[in-house]
Simulated scan of single mutants.
Amino acid sequence: MSRASGERPQERSGISRVERVLAAMTATVVGVSVVAFVAVLIGNYAGVVDGSGIWPVVVALPLVGFPIGFLLIIALIVLNAVKRSRRARADS
């Protein structure tokens, strides 16, 4: 399928592939961390105190995932600010 304008879809919409991948990574990391956090809350309420099996990973996942998600959000904000700055410089 050929495009009449010759532009890439991400250039027309203003969202680059890197931004889409970074946004997807952020949503995935934060989403999995929230699910693990809720699982820990439910597990503690249910009386799970045994630290065997998958529980150590489930407990540690939010401790690692939330800071990584925060750093990914910061990277996405910086990337967007640089893009807007370049666009503003090119328009003026």
Rank of each mutant, 00 (worst) to 15 (best):
S2H: 13
S2G: 09
R3M: 14
R3H: 15
A4F: 14
S5Y: 12
G6V: 06
G6Y: 08
G6Q: 07
P9K: 15
Q10M: 11
E11A: 14
R12L: 08
S13G: 05
S13P: 01
S13D: 05
I15Y: 08
S16I: 10
V18I: 11
V18Y: 11
V18D: 06
E19P: 02
E19C: 04
R20I: 02
R20H: 08
M25Y: 00
T26S: 02
T26P: 00
A27S: 06
A27I: 03
T28Q: 05
V29E: 00
V29Y: 00
V30G: 02
V30Y: 04
G31L: 07
G31E: 01
V32Y: 01
S33P: 02
V34P: 01
V34S: 02
V35E: 02
A36Q: 00
F37P: 01
A39N: 06
A39Q: 11
L41H: 11
I42G: 10
I42A: 11
I42R: 13
G43Y: 02
G43N: 03
N44E: 08
Y45F: 11
Y45G: 08
A46N: 15
V49N: 13
D50V: 08
G51T: 13
G53W: 07
G53E: 08
G53A: 09
P56E: 09
V57E: 09
V58Y: 02
V58Q: 01
V58W: 03
V59A: 06
A60E: 07
L61W: 01
P62F: 01
P62I: 01
P62Y: 00
L63T: 08
V64P: 01
V64T: 07
V64A: 03
G65E: 04
G65Y: 00
G65R: 02
G65L: 07
G65A: 13
P67N: 09
P67L: 12
I68V: 15
G69T: 02
G69S: 03
F70Y: 07
I73E: 13
I73R: 05
I73F: 12
I74K: 12
I74Q: 11
I74R: 14
A75E: 12
A75W: 05
L76M: 09
V78M: 07
V78T: 10
L79R: 03
N80P: 05
V82S: 11
V82M: 14
R84W: 10
R86H: 15
R86F: 15
R87I: 15
R87T: 15
R87G: 11
R89A: 15
